[in-house]
């Protein structure tokens, strides 16, 4: 899917850039974006390390397992392939909580940790699992109790009631989340999106132990 979308983006950009006489800007944008991507990734190292460090303490003390057991009844129907008590349940819960509170600095590292925990259940490395796609849909949507960035923009522009948008933002976010997850669950069984070289879904055994060097 991304193969086609990515190709379409690049082709469209060059063709349009040529027509609009903006081909030099397109070239410059490509070079700048490549450098910018590295800046973003390097900037992530610090917060990544911070949150992965704290999460490791939570894992070693058994806190993650407690959390995943506690939340399993809620997340079980969203992620039927993830065994209760698996570390992925804990890290997904923390990511979702951080998103709800609008703590994006914490949400991304915790989300990436959750992806790595989900990867430990993946039987076809390089191919997304159903749980990953559902989790991704939760993260590409945004349900925030307080949309702090937007309230800030409204306040800065001199709004008389900058918090008026809390309700509308939340309603749209929740609707998008519900539909997105439903769509993800419907599509996962279509042949078009099937996992190639699929084997009968064997239930993974006891909660997988830590795998710091998960396959890339």
């Amino acid at each position: 899917m991304l193969n086609y979308i990515w190709l379409a983006m690049v082709v469209l950009a060059v063709v349009l850039g040529g027509i609009n006489g903006r081909i030099e800007e397109v070239t410059k944008a490509a070079i700048d974006a490549a450098g910018g991507a590295v800046t973003i990734a390097i900037g992530l190292i610090g917060v990544m390390a911070l949150w992965l460090g704290v999460v490791k303490v939570a894992e070693d003390s058994g806190l993650m397992k407690l959390l995943s057991r506690a939340i399993a009844p809620v997340l079980k129907w969203l992620f039927p392939d993830v065994p209760p008590g698996h570390p992925a349940m804990g890290s997904m819960t923390m990511n979702i909580a951080a998103n709800l509170l609008g703590l994006s600095n914490a949400a991304t590292p915790l989300g990436l940790k959750a992806m790595q925990d989900l990867e430990s259940l993946n039987k076809a490395p390089g191919v997304a699992t159903n749980a990953m796609c559902t989790f991704l849909t939760i993260n590409t949507g945004s349900v925030q109790l307080i949309p702090a960035t937007m309230i800030g923009v409204m306040a800065a522009a001199g709004s008389k009631a900058p918090t008026e948008i809390i309700g509308t933002t939340l309603a749209a976010g929740v609707a998008a989340l519900a539909v997105g997850v439903a769509v993800a669950r419907l599509l996962q069984n279509l042949p078009l999106f099937a996992v190639r070289r699929q084997e009968p879904e064997a239930r993974p055994g006891p909660p997988a132990s830590e795998k710091p060097g998960e396959g890339a």
């Binding site: 899917m1 790595q116 390089g126 796609c133 993800a184 279509l190």
Partner: peptide, 10 residues
């Protein structure tokens, strides 16, 4: 972060 290239229905 997990080296997934086949993103399926995501």
């Amino acid at each position: 972060a997990v080296g997934v290239r086949k993103t399926r229905h995501a």
